[in-house]
Design a protein around this nucleic acid. Structure first.
Length: 880
RNA sequence: UGGACCGUAGCUCAGGGGGAGAGCACUUGCUUGACACGCAAGGGGUCGGGAGUUCAAAUCUCCCCGGUCCAACCA
C-alpha cells in the first residue's frame, strides 16, 4: 500500500468496476421492500456545481445505505431539456456562423439542438459519475425522450379534456430578448433605483390631474386614469375625461378600490396592455387594450408616429423630454422599486397581453396541499411545509406556453376551415368538425417544468403500466434544494397526485444551499465559485463528499471553503493509514470464529463502541441527520480506533503470545471491516479500495455488503467504563510529563490507591498495557497503597494516582497544577451544592434528577478531598 | 409589507429545560515501529440584549438589536 491515499486512479477503477458489475441496476422483481429516488434532473446545458455535488452526495448516501439494509433500490438519473437555456446555447453557436434560427427553419434548428445534445449533453452526467453516484445508468432518462414526450402529450390532452388546461388572452411576462412568455415563477424581482415621474394630465374642460409613474413610456398605451372611489379629492372627476398628452386621445377617469389613496397623488394611470394590475382593472371596467410595443420591446404602430421604432428605453427619454417641453412634467424624484427580470437572461420583463396556454392550478393545488397536510408526504425540515402551503394557497394559473422551438410542441391545431381548435393524442389528419385537412399546428412549445413535473412517473414508464412503475412508485424520497420547491416539487405533487392518484414521494428532504466562505451565493460573476471537479482533482471525491456530509445540518446553509475540504482529506488519509497498519499486522487468512468469549478491555471496549456507532449512524441516516452520521464516523475512527485502540493492541500484535496476537488480529479485522461498511455510503472509494486489499473478504464488492448486524452481546458499558479508567490514567501520566517538563525518555512508575475492587482489578489486569501506553516501568494498585513523598499526583474518580519522581519533582509547578485543578472542581461543586441546598429543587425536581445531582456531588466531593490531600502533601513537603 | 431561518470558543458550526461541545486555528513538547495529511499535552466562551414561565433557561414564550433568505400588485 502506498504511504498516502491517491484517489485519482482508485476512483476511476471502481467507477468502472461497479458499472461492469451492474451493481446499481435495479430489479423490480427482486424480493424485499423497494426504495426509490428520482434524481432532480440537471439542466442538460449545465455543469456540475457544489449544489449538485451536495445533492448527489446525500442521495447516494441514502441509496447505498438502503441497499445495505436490504432494500431493492432504484435511483433514476437523467437530465431535463431546459428549453430556453438550450435554445440560447444553440442560437449562440448559429450566430457565430452568421445565422439566426429563422434562417435555417424550425426543423433544421431542432436537428441542430439534438446534435448539440448528442455532443455536449452528457457532460454533467459524466461529472455526476465522478462523484460516485450509484444511479442506475440503464434507466437514464431525458425529458425529450420518446417515452417522456408521450407522457407529456397524454397529460396535456387529459388536462385539456378535463378543462384544466385552457388558452386565453391574458397578460403574461414577456422576455423581449428570449421572445417568449414566462411563468410568474420565472421572473426574478430585483430592487433597482429608478425614478418616479409626476406628470400632469389635462382634464377635458379645464384643470388637470397629476399621475405618478416609473414607466412614462407606457402612457402611450393608457386607456384610463383611476382614483379611489372614496377619495374625496377626486370625487367630482370620476366619469370625466382626460386629454392624454402626446397622443391626442381622450381617456376616462374611473374609480377603483385598487388605487391607494395615500401613495403619490392618489391618482393612477392605467395601462391594461402593459401592467398586470392595470390589466385586472381594465377587465373590471371593460377598458380597451392598447399594446404599444412589439415582441422586442420596440414601440409599434399603436404609438404615435414620433415614437414608433424607438426602444422602450429611448422612448422613455424622448417622452420625458417632450413632456418637459410642454410643461407637463411636474417633477422627477429618485425611487427604489422592484423590477422583474428574466431568470435566464436578466432582461427586464415586459408585461404584455397575448394568447397563451394555462393550467388551471387551484384544483390540482388543493390535492397537493392535502397530501402534505394529512402526512402522505412529509416535508423535512418541517418548517418548509408552511412555505409550501402558502404558495399553494395563493397559487395563480400557470402559463405553460413558450414561444420557442426547443421543447414539447403543444398538441393543438387550428382548423383553417372552421376555426376550431383541435387538441389530440394523435396528430390529426383532418378537422373532426368540418373535415378540412388544412390544420395549422400551434407553434408554441411547453414550459420545461411541465415535463419535469411528470418526472417521478414518466421516468418509470408511464403512461404504460410497467413493472418499474408498480415496484418503484411512489418514490421513497426526494432530495432537493428549497429554490425549486415551487418550480418543481409542488408541481410534481400536483401532477403525481392527479395522474397516479398517489403522492410521488413519501418524504421530501430539503437540503442546504452551498455558499462561499462568507455566506454569499456562489456565482460565476462574483467569481467565488468552488468547482467540485477541481476539488475532486485536488483532494479526492471522498474528501469532498465527507465535507459536504459533515456540514449538511438540517435547515442550515453550508458555508464552504477549500481548506475545509482539505481538512477532511486528512481524515480519508488517516483511514488509509490505519488500514495500512492493519494490513501489516493481519495474517493472510482470518479465522472464522471471531470475537466471542472473554476478552481484554481494549477489544471489549472497541467492539462495544462499534455497536453504538452502528446504531447511531443508522438512526442518523434514517432521520436525514447526515452531519451526525459523519461526526460519529469521524470521531470513532480517529479519536477512538486510531488514537487508542490501535495503540493499545500494538504490544499484542508484535508480542510473542500467540493467543493474544490472534485475538488482537481477529478483533482488529472485525472492527475495521464493519467500520468500512458503515463509512462506505459517505466515502465509497477509499472504503472499497481498502476492502479489496484486506484478507478474509468473501464479497469483493463492498457496495453489495449488508449493514453489519446488531450484536447486543458485544455492547458492554462495563468494558467502556474500564477503558475510560485506563485512558484517564494514561492521560494523567502524560499530563505530568508535559506540565512538569519531565523528559519524554524518562521512565516512570505509577501507584494507584484504589477506591474499589473493580478499579483495582481493571488496573492490575491491564498493567502491562498501561505501562506501554504511559511509558511506565511498573504499576501497582490497591486500597492500601501509600504515597511516596516526592511524587506527582492526580485524582481519578475516587482513585489517587501517584507517580514518584525521585528528586525530580518541581514542587512549585506541581502545586500550581493541583491548585488549578482544585479551582476547577470547586467551581463545579459550588454550582451543584447551591442546587442541592435549594429546597424547591429537592422538593419539586424529578427524583432521578435529584439523585443524579446527589451522586455528582458525592463523586465530586470525593475527588476534591483527594486533590486536597495531594495538595496538602505537597505543602508539607515544601514546608520541610 | 408578510413569512422563515440564524446570532454558542479567533473562524465554521453541532447541541436544544438539569454536567457548555466538535473541527479548524492557537500555545507547548515530540523524527514513539500506519500516518507531519502525523503524535501528545494544553489555553480559550456572562451561548446577541432584555423581560417572563419554571425548583431549574444556551434550550420554552414575548419584546428589542443584528444578519441571511423567500413571497409579495403600491404606481
Amino acid at each position: 500500500m502506498a504511504k498516502g491515499y491517491e484517489p485519482k486512479e482508485v476512483e476511476e477503477r471502481w467507477i468502472t468496476y461497479w458499472r461492469e458489475q451492474n451493481t446499481f441496476t435495479a430489479d423490480p422483481q427482486a424480493p424485499g421492500a423497494a426504495y426509490s429516488i428520482v434524481i432532480p434532473p440537471p439542466n442538460v446545458t449545465g455543469a456540475l456545481h457544489m449544489g449538485h455535488a451536495l445533492n448527489i452526495t446525500l442521495q447516494d448516501i441514502l441509496c447505498r445505505h438502503a441497499r445495505q439494509k436490504g432494500r431493492k433500490v432504484l435511483w433514476v438519473p437523467g437530465t431535463d431539456h431546459a428549453g430556453i437555456a438550450t435554445q440560447n446555447v444553440v442560437e449562440r453557436a448559429l450566430k457565430a456562423e452568421g445565422l439566426a434560427r429563422e434562417d435555417i427553419g424550425r426543423e433544421a434548428f431542432i436537428e441542430r439542438v439534438w446534435a448539440w445534445r448528442e455532443e455536449y449533453g452528457g457532460k454533467i452526467l459524466n461529472q455526476i459519475r465522478r462523484l460516485g453516484a450509484s444511479v442506475d445508468w440503464s434507466r437514464e432518462r431525458f425529458t425529450m425522450d420518446e417515452g417522456l414526450s408521450r407522457a407529456v402529450r397524454e397529460v396535456f390532452v387529459s388536462l385539456h379534456e378535463q378543462g384544466l388546461i385552457y388558452k386565453g388572452d391574458y397578460i403574461i411576462n414577456w422576455c423581449p430578448r428570449c421572445h417568449t412568455a414566462l411563468a410568474d415563477l420565472e421572473v426574478e424581482h430585483a430592487a433597482k433605483r429608478g425614478a418616479l415621474y409626476r406628470i400632469k394630465y389635462p382634464l377635458a374642460g379645464g384643470g388637470h390631474v397629476v399621475v405618478a409613474t416609473t414607466r412614462p413610456e407606457t402612457m402611450l398605451g393608457d386607456t384610463a386614469v383611476a382614483v379611489h372611489p372614496e377619495d374625496e379629492r377626486y370625487a367630482g372627476l370620476v366619469g370625466r375625461e382626460v386629454e392624454l398628452p402626446l397622443t391626442g386621445r381622450r381617456i376616462p377617469v374611473i374609480a377603483d378600490p385598487y388605487v391607494d389613496k395615500d401613495f403619490g397623488t392618489g391618482c393612477l394611470k392605467v395601462t391594461p396592455a402593459h401592467d398586470i394590475n392595470d390589466f385586472e382593472m381594465g377587465r373590471r371596467h371593460d377598458l380597451p387594450l392598447i399594446k404599444v410595443m412589439d415582441g422586442s420591446g420596440v414601440m409599434n404602430e399603436n404609438a404615435p408616429a414620433a415614437y414608433q421604432g424607438l426602444t422602450r428605453e429611448a422612448c422613455r427619454e424622448k417622452i420625458v423630454e417632450d413632456l418637459r417641453g410642454q410643461g407637463l412634467l411636474l417633477d422627477v424624484s429618485e425611487h427604489e422599486h422592484n423590477v422583474g427580470e428574466c431568470y435566464r437572461c436578466k432582461t427586464v420583463i415586459e408585461p404584455t397581453v397575448s394568447p397563451q396556454w394555462f393550467v388551471r392550478a387551484a384544483p390540482l393545488a388543493a390535492e397537493a396541499r392535502r397530501a402534505v397536510a394529512d402526512g402522505r408526504t412529509e416535508i423535512l425540515p418541517g418548517h418548509w411545509t408552511k412555505t409550501y402551503f402558502d404558495w399553494l394557497d395563493n397559487i395563480r394559473d400557470w402559463c405553460i406556453s413558450r414561444q420557442i422551438w426547443w421543447g414539447h410542441r403543444i398538441p393543438a391545431w387550428t382548423c383553417e376551415g372552421c376555426g376550431q381548435v383541435v387538441v389530440s393524442r394523435e396528430d390529426p389528419t383532418a378537422c373532426p368538425y368540418c373535415r378540412s385537412t388544412k390544420l395549422a399546428r400551434d407553434p408554441d412549445v411547453l414550459d420545461t417544468w411541465f415535463s419535469s413535473a411528470l418526472w417521478p412517473f414518466s421516468t418509470l414508464g408511464w403512461p404504460d403500466d410497467t413493472p418499474d412503475l408498480r415496484a418503484f412508485y411512489p418514490t421513497s424520497a426526494l432530495v432537493t434544494g428549497f429554490d425549486i420547491l415551487f418550480f418543481w416539487v409542488a408541481r410534481m405533487m400536483m401532477m403525481g397526485l392527479h395522474f397516479m392518484k398517489q403522492t410521488p414521494f413519501r418524504q421530501v428532504y430539503i437540503h442546504a444551499l452551498v455558499r462561499d466562505h462568507e455566506g454569499k451565493k456562489m456565482s460565476k460573476s462574483t467569481g467565488n465559485v468552488i468547482d467540485p471537479l477541481v476539488m475532486i482533482d485536488r483532494y479526492g471525491t471522498d474528501a469532498l463528499r465527507f465535507t459536504l456530509t459533515a456540514f449538511a445540518a438540517m435547515g442550515r446553509d453550508i458555508k464552504l471553503s477549500e481548506d475545509r475540504i482539505e481538512g477532511y482529506r486528512h481524515f480519508v488519509n488517516k483511514l488509509w493509514n490505519a488500514a495500512r497498519f492493519a494490513l501489516m499486522h493481519l495474517p493472510e487468512t482470518i479465522p472464522d470464529a471471531c470475537c466471542s468469549g472473554p476478552r481484554d478491555v481494549p477489544h471489549a471496549w472497541i467492539l462495544s463502541r462499534l455497536e453504538e456507532v452502528k446504531t447511531a449512524v443508522d438512526e442518523a441516516i434514517a432521520g436525514y441527520r447526515f452531519n451526525e452520521a459523519a461526526q460519529e464516523l469521524y470521531t470513532f475512527l480517529w479519536r477512538e480506533f486510531c488514537d487508542w485502540y490501535l495503540e493499545m493492541i500494538k504490544p499484542d500484535l508484535t508480542g510473542e503470545d500467540k493467543g493474544r496476537k490472534e485475538t488482537a488480529q481477529k478483533t482488529l479485522w472485525t472492527v475495521l471491516t464493519e467500520y468500512l461498511v458503515l463509512l462506505h455510503p459517505v466515502a465509497p472509494f477509499v472504503t472499497q479500495e481498502i476492502w479489496s486489499q484486506l484478507p478474509g473478504i468473501k464479497e469483493q464488492n463492498l457496495a453489495k455488503m449488508p449493514y453489519p448486524a446488531k450484536r447486543n452481546d458485544r455492547h458492554s458499558l462495563r468494558a467502556q467504563a474500564r477503558a475510560e479508567l485506563i485512558q484517564d490514567l494514561v492521560t494523567a501520566v502524560r499530563n505530568f510529563r508535559a506540565e512538569l517538563s519531565i523528559p519524554p525518555g524518562l521512565k516512570l512508575t505509577a501507584l494507584v490507591k484504589t477506591a474499589s475492587d473493580e478499579d483495582r482489578n481493571t488496573l492490575l489486569g491491564s498493567g502491562e498495557l498501561i505501562c506501554f501506553l504511559a511509558r511506565l516501568t511498573s504499576i501497582d494498585a490497591g486500597p492500601d497503597v501509600t504515597a511516596p513523598k516526592a511524587s506527582a499526583s492526580a485524582a481519578l474518580g475516587g482513585n489517587a494516582l501517584f507517580v514518584p519522581l525521585s528528586g525530580a519533582v518541581d514542587f512549585a509547578a506541581e502545586l500550581e497544577r493541583l491548585n488549578k485543578e482544585l479551582a476547577k472542581l470547586a467551581k463545579e461543586a459550588d454550582i451543584i451544592g447551591r442546587k442541592l441546598a435549594n429546597e424547591d429543587f429537592v422538593a419539586r425536581a424529578p427524583g432521578d434528577v435529584v439523585a443524579k445531582e446527589r451522586e455528582k456531588a458525592r463523586a465530586l466531593g470525593e475527588k476534591i478531598a483527594k486533590v486536597e490531600e495531594l495538595r496538602g502533601r505537597i505543602l508539607d513537603i515544601m514546608g520541610e
